[in-house]
Computed example of a mutant assay.
Amino acid sequence: MANRHLARSIVLQTLYEWDFRKLPDGSTVDVLHRNIKEFAPGLTDSDFLQGLLSNIISKREDIDRIIEKAAPDWPLEKIGIVDRNVLRLGLFELLFADKEEVPAKVAINEAIELGKTFGGENSGKFINGVLGSVYKELGEPGKDAPPRKKKGDVPFEKMPVKKLGGAVVYAKSGKDIYLALVHDIFRHWTLSKGQIGNNPRIANEGVEEGTVRKIKEEIGVDVAIRADLGSNEYVASDPEEGKIRKQVHYFLAESRFVPLKLEKKGGLDDAKWFKLADILELNFYNDILPIVTKAINLLLKK
């Protein structure tokens, strides 16, 4: 895949010039063709280059928002131009590229190598930290899609299992009912949840007890479990453990209507109360929407 590495280098050079000279987005194709002619005249993978460049440009706002959340101590404008654009390239391939064509570890490793080649002394370490944080905390995006078996994959039934507990948290204020939701850096509203029994001190906690604990840790409210909403399961990727099965059990839980205090980690950037009437207009993951809908139906019957 030496040609692909060279292609990414050409795309990075183009992004650098576009960023440094503050060129309009539409000019990048001309810059790309000039760079191909100058630095890689024999390169035949032009479709890959053009597709990669145009997709990075089109998703720049989303990617930049993710960089800001994953590296909160480094405002985007303070990150060096090379590192900033290596991150854009790496995050696009990590989050949006075809995983069959560009596995997550390939996306991360390629970005690190670009940083080492074109950036400063600490670029590789910085890029590895940002991309690794996104990958480890969120797993591969696309968890709604059914897992696809690849050659060499661990069979589904043999994957490690992590058990999580989550809740549709509600509160009453006057005549209104509100739901507490958390927002992630992929611009989805979702439910507060966390791993159950994830250290020796709490290894034997029950799923309800663990869910109450995680809600308190994540959004700062005390809750009481009122109903069982069922479970879902999805496959995620961990850079150390590989493919893992995440089994999440959800509850309907009541809280007082008090300010939420988000624990800002794990890719979350906001927590808010929403009136029931506004809930279904929000952007949810496909596997979360049925859980929320079931909770709303139960609340409307009360």
Rank of each mutant, 00 (worst) to 15 (best):
L91W: 06
A97E: 15
S27P: 11
P75Y: 13
K59A: 13
N55P: 08
T44Y: 08
R34V: 03
L23E: 15
W74H: 10
S27H: 08
T28P: 03
H33W: 00
E17V: 10
S46Y: 03
S123Q: 01
V106P: 00
I66V: 13
E121R: 03
N55Y: 02
D30Q: 10
E38C: 06
V102G: 04
G80P: 14
L114P: 10
F118T: 01
R21C: 03
L43A: 02
I81D: 12
N35Q: 10
S27A: 15
L76G: 12
E113H: 04
V31P: 04
V31N: 03
F126T: 00
I81L: 12
D47P: 00
N122E: 09
T44K: 15
I66M: 14
L87Q: 05
G120R: 06
V86I: 10
L91F: 11
L89C: 09
D64G: 03
G90I: 10
T117R: 13
I79P: 08
E100V: 09
L89M: 11
R21W: 01
F126H: 02
L32K: 03
E100D: 14
E93N: 12
R88G: 06
E100C: 11
E61D: 12
E93I: 06
K99F: 05
I66F: 07
N35F: 11
G115E: 05
A104K: 03
D25T: 10
L87R: 04
L49H: 04
K116D: 13
A40N: 08
D98L: 00
I79S: 09
D47Q: 07
V102N: 08
D64M: 05
R34S: 11
W18Q: 14
V86E: 04
E17W: 00
E93F: 01
E61W: 02
S27C: 12
D19F: 01
R88W: 06
K125C: 00
I81G: 09
D19E: 15
L95S: 09
K69R: 12
N35A: 08
V102W: 06
E38M: 11
R60F: 05
P103K: 03
N122A: 05
N55I: 01
T28Y: 03
L53C: 07
G115H: 06
K125M: 04
S58Q: 08
D25F: 10
L95F: 01
N85T: 13
D30H: 14
I108A: 08
E77D: 15
E121A: 04
R65E: 12
T44V: 07
I57Y: 01
E68F: 02
F92L: 09
E61R: 14
E100Y: 10
